Simulated assay, not measured.
Amino acid sequence: MHFYQILKKIIRTGVGKARFLMAAIGLGIAMLLILVALQVHHNFSELLYGERNQNERADFLVINKRITNEMMGNSALSTFKPEEIEAFKQQPFVDGFGVITAGQYNVKMVADQLGFSTELFFEAVPDSFIDVQTDQWKWQQGQEVVPVIVPSDFLDMFNFGFAMGNNIPQFSEETISSLTPGIVISQGMRSSQFAGRIVGFSDRISTVLVPMSFMEWANGAYGTGEEKPPSRVIIKTKDPSNPVLTDYLEQHGYSTNKEKTRFSKVRVIVQTIVSVVGFFGIVLLMFALLVFSMFIQLVIASCKREIRLLITLGAAPGQLQRYLLKQFVPLYIIIGLLALVMVTGLQWWASGLLARHQMFVPALPGIITFIAAAAILVLVYLVNLFAVRKHIAGMASS
């Protein structure tokens, strides 16, 4: 009787078959969990950083210090010190950093056409952080018209709050942009008058902006003459949901638009789930390797007499090893292919489901998934090869 026939006979016995099936099922589940964890991680990265999921490759956050009771009456505590700014600039999640310069003077805007006047304040940021594209965004000393950018919410507040509450007409963006409200800046008894021109509406920065050139002139002419530390800064970042970013803000008592960072907790939860799934996959893989090794040991021990007889008759240990491994290699490949087919099916389903919500991931698994499947199969083969060699060599020398 050939050795492979003896092996098949042992595998079909009760204990051997049970352990064989247990090892095969464990290996299949382990591979599936590991591959799913890797693919979910790949999909999550694609949703965050993939070009199809982003209109632009970066986001902008306006950041200030969180106001506490201890800061009340001491505005210096709410400003950024030079060393805090330098430390912020060096953070890995910061791709661009700008200071928001506040006006050191009083501002009043009067729009007679709207029946509207209000006290407000001006701020300025570097032009690279402005999301309004216009060739009117410039000012030089002596120019009477000051270009102004207001938040997009400003028009909504006027139309649906002030206008409706005061029985006056509502205005479109085009109408508002055509108006030239009066602007009065003052400090004490000194004042200057300008004509304002709203040149755009910003979705990025919730403040009334003027060109930096105007801000520097006005602060020099109507300010205290001393450069004040900023109370707000703006950063450019690729991923506002980055837990490293949100942890940094929390640790230093900084605050920003929570709507943009709210996915940070979701991301941590997803990463935790992926890690747990991957961990259980690795545990199951170790379990499958152990059961396979025990099964091989059982098979060899069960046919110890036949193996010794074959060795006595001249069968080489290497030949016996190859016979034994041939019974398992096809099974490894089948399990690996089934796991890949299932992951591919899940990926195709997830891709279609997410596409309905304008979120895009590849329809097929990433290359890392296929590499991982091959690596797991190689690992299983090497572990079983080691077990076979160990037991056959031990039996041949005894």
Results as ranks from 00 to 15, higher is better:
residue 81 K to P: 04
residue 110 V to H: 06
residue 61 L to D: 01
residue 48 L to T: 13
residue 91 Q to V: 04
residue 59 D to L: 00
residue 96 G to Y: 08
residue 60 F to N: 06
residue 62 V to D: 00
residue 57 R to T: 12
residue 122 F to Y: 14
residue 47 L to D: 10
residue 56 E to M: 10
residue 76 A to S: 15
residue 109 M to G: 05
residue 128 S to M: 06
residue 125 V to C: 06
residue 55 N to P: 01
residue 101 T to M: 14
residue 119 E to Y: 00
residue 104 Q to P: 04
residue 120 L to V: 07
residue 133 Q to N: 12
residue 115 G to I: 02
residue 115 G to C: 02
residue 77 L to S: 11
residue 102 A to S: 15
residue 64 N to M: 10
residue 97 F to R: 06
residue 87 A to I: 01
residue 77 L to H: 04
residue 66 R to G: 02
residue 104 Q to V: 05
residue 78 S to W: 02
residue 52 R to P: 00
residue 49 Y to A: 11
residue 61 L to E: 00
residue 89 K to E: 08
residue 67 I to Y: 12
residue 99 V to A: 08
residue 97 F to Y: 13
residue 113 Q to G: 00
residue 99 V to I: 15
residue 63 I to D: 02
residue 126 P to Y: 06
residue 126 P to H: 08
residue 50 G to A: 08
residue 70 E to H: 03
residue 107 V to K: 03
residue 127 D to Y: 06
residue 68 T to K: 13
residue 128 S to I: 12
residue 109 M to Q: 10
residue 100 I to D: 04
residue 119 E to A: 05
residue 128 S to P: 00
residue 121 F to W: 09
residue 95 D to T: 10
residue 98 G to Q: 09
residue 49 Y to K: 10
residue 82 P to H: 13
residue 93 F to Y: 08
residue 125 V to L: 12
residue 120 L to R: 01
residue 133 Q to H: 10
residue 129 F to K: 03
residue 108 K to A: 14
residue 84 E to G: 08
residue 55 N to E: 13
residue 106 N to T: 12
residue 74 N to R: 14
residue 101 T to F: 11
residue 101 T to G: 09
residue 123 E to S: 15
residue 49 Y to D: 12
residue 74 N to W: 03
residue 83 E to K: 14
residue 103 G to D: 09
residue 88 F to R: 01
residue 116 F to E: 01
residue 58 A to V: 04
residue 131 D to R: 05
residue 126 P to A: 08
residue 97 F to A: 09
